[in-house]
Amino acid sequence: MSSNEISKIQELFDNLKSDKYPLDEYQSVGKRGVRRIDGYEKATGAAKYTMDVQLPGMLHLRFLTSPYPHAEIKSLDTSKAEALPGVRAVLRYDDPELPAGADLGGHETSDLPVLP
């Protein structure tokens, strides 16, 4: 493949990142579609979603959920989790620092416990 063809395909790919079509392709006035401006990033997997963000010193979180629906928690032993190496915090449903109605920075507060 010649370098001319390669640069042509490179130009074609660069154009995909814009929502405007190259004007010299068109000679008459009329309807033309508009490209998605984020189409190239999304089709190539380059778009960054929350899951793809990695920050220095980032902590990871795991939920322990109940295997039973609508169950009452009678006791919860988190001592083993707290003793694991590298664990920075264990948040419990009965954490006194997370009372019902706590403002966690969302749209509104609720009287329900933060971790039900």
Partner: peptide, 27 residues
Amino acid sequence: EGITGAKHPLIEAYVNHSCMQCGYCTP
């Protein structure tokens, strides 16, 4: 990433046909 690096015609076709909304499944 390899398919993008090879400038496969699929990428061009996917952008031009607007095959995505949120785009999470597209790759």
